[in-house]
Amino acid sequence: MFFTLFHTFNLFSIYAVWRRHLTVYRATWLSNFLPPMTEPIFYLFGFGLGLNPIIGKVIYLGHEIEYLKFIAPGMVGVAVLLQSFFEAAYGSFIRLQYQKTWQAILTTPIGYTNLFFGELCWAATKGIIAGCVTSFVIIISGFAALKDLLLFIPLIFISSFMFAALGLLVIGLINKIDEINLPVFLLVIPMSVMAGTYYPRSNLPDAIERIVSFLPLSALVDILRFNIAPHSNWCFELLEIIAWVILLTFLAWSSIHRKLFKKLLFFG
């Protein structure tokens, strides 16, 4: 079965699907590009500047650091999460359920697997763009160093795929667009607030901290803060991110297949 999966992989097909999205994106780039880019930046300055006088400094892993410097890497994580997840969950869902773009593409030589990975790569691309723009803003603002990019860029890259896969898994599981609210308000929004983005997770009660630490965004923001103070578990967290990417991609791939063909891949 895995053999057939890789056998059907075709990079040009994946690119052709990705390129369709780029064509649309370029035609509407202003409305597409600006709001999502400015969102984490407003969070950074809105929360950061507003709360900075009250909080001043935070204690993170025993280090005392300026609040704005603390939340800056968190905002990179939030940007990646929101952009990849929402492109996959809303954008791909509309193309699948309403515009029937998936169904139209499936009449061509592009097979299901290549179409799926084209969608995944596009949603990840939007996360990568958002993560990079936010990184540049925090570097220019002096909340991170230029060398931090060496760490940020590979992390942004891999975690964009993780959250894109999460968004695609959501569309594989839901039938109506309203049902997107469930994962959005029960998982994505709480995760963006509680995963150690705006404050250290150690401020939370023990039991909650333990649960929240399992969320994919927690691992990401911890490693993004590597240059502030390396988390003792960073190695494990990196493996965790890779495991999430593989698991979520596989589940999304299988569940959307079931939705389109009424047949679950691998499970019969």
Binding site: V17, R19, K100, T101, T108, I110
Partner: peptide, 24 residues
Amino acid sequence: TQENNLDPDLTVYQNLIVFSRFYG
């Protein structure tokens, strides 16, 4: 196909160009 599944995000010309790419 029976249903109209043209790409509403694209122009008439782009619909065909994008589809051509799907055939390489």
